[in-house]
Amino acid sequence: MSNRMKNIVVPLVAVLLGVLVGTIIMIATGYNAGSAFIALWNGAFGEIYYTGEVVRQVTPYILAGLAVAFAFRTGLFNIGVEGQLIVGWLAAVWVGVAFELPKFIHLPLAVLAAAAAGALWAFIPGLLKAKFKVHEVIVTIMMNYVALHVTNYIIRTVLSEKSDRTEMIADSASLRSPFLEGLTDYSRLHWGILIALACVFLMWFLLEKTSKGYELRSVGFNQHASEYAGMSVSRNIILSMVISGAFAGLAGAMEALGTFGYAAIKGGFTGVGFDGIAVALLGGNGPIGIIFAALLFGSLKVGALNMPLEAGVPNELVDIIIALIVFFVAASYMIRIFIDRISKKGVK
């Protein structure tokens, strides 16, 4: 089997294994697996409203997945997408409530503010990695918690008077669309999906079609060779983190300007950043793969909300399935060996 085929088959096998184990868990705990999956399907595609919600959920997933994948492709592990998303969210809301501008300036400004905030938040681990050789995984994890507490503090003291949430953003900064809402029976679907898809193209173009992208990938593959070829390793590491953080910040803008329209005090993480790791992994860090993976996880997450209502199965089952899929993709060495054995037998 060719490598290309394997890169498609391995994620599919991982998804199947995840669903299989999820089914076994449901049977073992006495739930009706059949009706659970029907409820899951209906909750995602049964009505046009739900489908709108799926696409709404897919939007930040695509961007979070891009953030993780972009760093991966350049040899870095950005586990801080969650924190960069939160500061992006806050920045977008801040611009949204602080200014009164015409829409064609206000909306782009709010979106760019989110990207800039996320980029800044990722710049720190990038800089520390480049200058002090500090591993980015630990720094980005720590930055997640700093982001959580700092944004909560700003929401409570600067953006509101000791309240739990900010006021709504101005209409001129909103991504909401009465047209899309009307089309999908008043779901929260907004224009952000177009930004997400544009970013998918942007990432592909940047990495595959520009010399800067070649440099970034090259540094990811082999730092020493790249340095020998005259590339600045530290500058490329920082740049890669900044771009990755900008994608994460945009994911925050989707929640800020599209779905919610405000920022609220958070007791814990949104989870979108960590799900972004799952999206990137399953999607093989490629543009098309990320869209499909985001679609899968988005419909699982939204559809799951219907499972307790229609089938009496806790929606956390879907979280288990997602975790298992990540696990099986991570341990794909096992799947690859298995495929190799089978396909060799086929050749003989």
Partner: peptide
């Protein structure tokens, strides 16, 4: 030989999902 960070992330996702389930 999985990526140890990814496997750890999967453990985190799995634990909270399984416990709440």
């Amino acid at each position: 030989r999985a990526d140890q960070v990814v496997s750890g992330v999967a453990i985190n996702l799995l634990a909270i999902g399984a416990a709440l389930f």
